[in-house]
Amino acid sequence: MKISLQINASPYQHQAADSAWHFIQAAILSGHDICRVFFYHDGVFNALRDSRPPGDERDVVKRWSELHAKHGVDLVVCVSSAQRRGLLEQTVAKKLGGYQSALADGFRIAGLGLLMEALIDADRHITFGD
């Protein structure tokens, strides 16, 4: 089955990112296809490249990057949510050569169209967060 996810909450403050990640591990193990994870609202903070949690804690951002590297899961950060929250700080982004630099490896920035595409394409769409 094709399953897409949406994450609406920031990591560390809310369990959403953890729940989603564990869900995805189980879904992949069961042979399902996770076609996209769409980061919306405060969920965009899951993509912060410069996030550095203490060494004895799970690294949520890194976990996403690894999920992309290992399973090719499409990680999409909503452009307008990100802009509103300063994730794509203009001058920095420009200086470093585009928005992509603000995001950790494996994430890409795109519009709500990609959420719609996932909603239409996937058999199930599961929302985590508030």
Binding site: F23, Q25, A26, A27, S30, H32, R124
Partner: peptide, 10 residues
């Protein structure tokens, strides 16, 4: 467990 969660979703 999470596998059961996935099952419920399907």
């Amino acid at each position: 467990d999470y596998a059961g969660f996935v099952m419920l979703v399907t």
